[in-house]
């Protein structure tokens, strides 16, 4: 896997620089770069559905890892800790503010009917936490903060998602087609992988809070950027484009 970006825009105190549009400067081999380049970042305020805060955590026994160690290992192995069968194309150097990562996922689409292409940007990173913010069209609009701190009983390691489904279609999928369960599975698997890395089988605690029940109907238009629809269209059309390109190539030869 290769770098997803070059010279990420970075500012002080661990934050990335604001970007009007996300720029993917390098696409790793095997990755599909769709629905990321040229898109805006999209936070929990820009989404459509109810706002959820989901916290998945484990406690590593004392002496297993310091918070700094846990986060360093998580950053360095983020790709390997990802759900099998899905791909998180992050930079080799770990995750630094301004880095853009591509996500090619079958799990995120209910029924695994197509491979979703989307992405995230690292908006914040320090020694004990880092945050990924989604791009327009992603199933959810928001961010995920991965953090670790000393707690009672050891070192707590957690992923906290603050999100709204991005548009009416993703909201339907979240509510009725198991989208929320899929998300739970993704982060529970990731945390299990972190624990396994340290040779621990820690139970995973899941806390889900509906922060805002309100649907933001004014954001229904986000559906035009829906990465699932666009990935589906790409999958449908791309064989014809490849065929046309091959025919043109053979004519030139």
């Amino acid at each position: 896997m290769a770098d997803g970006t070059q010279q990420p825009p970075q500012t002080s105190n661990g934050w990335a620089q604001p970007v009007p549009k996300v720029k993917v400067s390098h696409v790793p081999e095997g990755a599909v770069n769709l629905n990321v380049d040229g898109r805006q970042l999209s936070g929990p305020l820009q989404g459509f559905g109810p706002m959820w805060q989901k916290t998945y955590s484990i406690v590593l026994p004392p002496g297993t890892a310091t918070p700094e160690e846990a986060i360093r290992v998580w950053k360095e192995n983020f790709t390997d800790f990802w759900l099998p069968g899905d791909h998180f194309y992050g930079p080799l150097s770990g995750l630094n503010p301004g880095d853009v990562a591509l996500i090619n996922s079958k799990e995120s689409v209910p029924g695994g009917l197509l491979k979703l292409s989307t992405g995230v940007m690292v908006v914040y990173a320090d020694d004990t936490s880092f945050t990924l913010m989604t791009t327009q069209g992603h199933p959810f609009s928001g961010w995920v903060t991965f953090s670790s701190y000393e707690a009672e009983g050891g070192t707590r390691v957690q992923a906290q998602v603050l999100m709204r489904a991005n548009d009416p279609m993703w909201e339907f999928g979240m509510r009725f087609l198991g989208g929320h369960r899929t998300e739970d599975r993704i982060w529970q698997h990731t945390l299990s992988s972190v624990a396994a890395h340290f040779g621990v089988a820690a139970p995973i605690s899941t806390e889900i809070v509906c922060v805002d029940k309100k649907i933001q109907w004014g954001r229904a238009g986000n559906i035009w950027q829906n990465a699932g629809i666009r990935s589906g269209m790409y999958m449908t059309v791309s064989p014809f484009l490849r065929f046309r390109s091959a025919v043109r190539g053979s004519r030139r030869a």
């Binding site: 706002m51 805060q53 936490s129 945050t131 961010w143 903060t145 906290q160 603050l162 922060v211």
Partner: peptide, 15 residues
Amino acid sequence: YMNSSGIGLLVTLLV
């Protein structure tokens, strides 16, 4: 100092 979790607190406060 404010980190990303602090920004998250402001979002929930806004709600």
